[in-house]
Simulated scan of single mutants.
Amino acid sequence: MNNHSFKIPVIIPITIGIIAISFSSIFVKWSTAPVSVQAMFRLLFTLILMIPFVWKHRNWLKNLTVKTYIMLFLSGILLALHFLFWMGSLKLTTVASSTILLSLQPIFVMIGAYIGFKEKTSKSAMLSMVVAIIGASMIGWGDIGISITNIQGDILSVLGTIVVAIHMLIGQSLLKSIPSTLYSFMVFLVAVMVFALYNMTLDIPMTGYSHADWGIFLLLAIVPTVFGHVLFNWLLKQVTAATISMAILGEPVGASLLAILLLNEPLSLTQFIGGLIVLLGLYFFLQNTRKQHKNNTAKMTSKPRNGDSIIKDERDNFQA
Rank of each mutant, 00 (worst) to 15 (best):
S245V: 09
N150D: 15
T121H: 08
A165W: 04
F272H: 06
F27W: 07
M193V: 15
L47V: 05
L236H: 03
E314T: 13
K299T: 11
N150V: 07
T99I: 09
M126G: 06
L84E: 06
I133N: 01
I133T: 01
K291E: 11
T93Q: 08
G76Q: 07
E119L: 04
F85S: 05
V278Y: 04
W141G: 00
I248V: 15
F83H: 08
I244E: 02
A196S: 14
F227P: 05
T15N: 07
L220T: 09
W214G: 01
I115Q: 10
R58I: 12
H82R: 08
D203R: 12
G281H: 05
L169P: 05
T68I: 11
I14D: 00
D203E: 14
E119N: 03
A212C: 05
A212M: 13
K29V: 13
F188E: 02
P52Q: 10
R58E: 04
V253R: 02
I146K: 15
T68K: 04
F53A: 09
L282C: 08
A20F: 03
L102P: 00
F23H: 02
H57F: 13
S309Q: 12
L78H: 04
F284N: 09
S31C: 05
A132E: 03
W214F: 11
W234L: 09
I166S: 01
V253L: 11
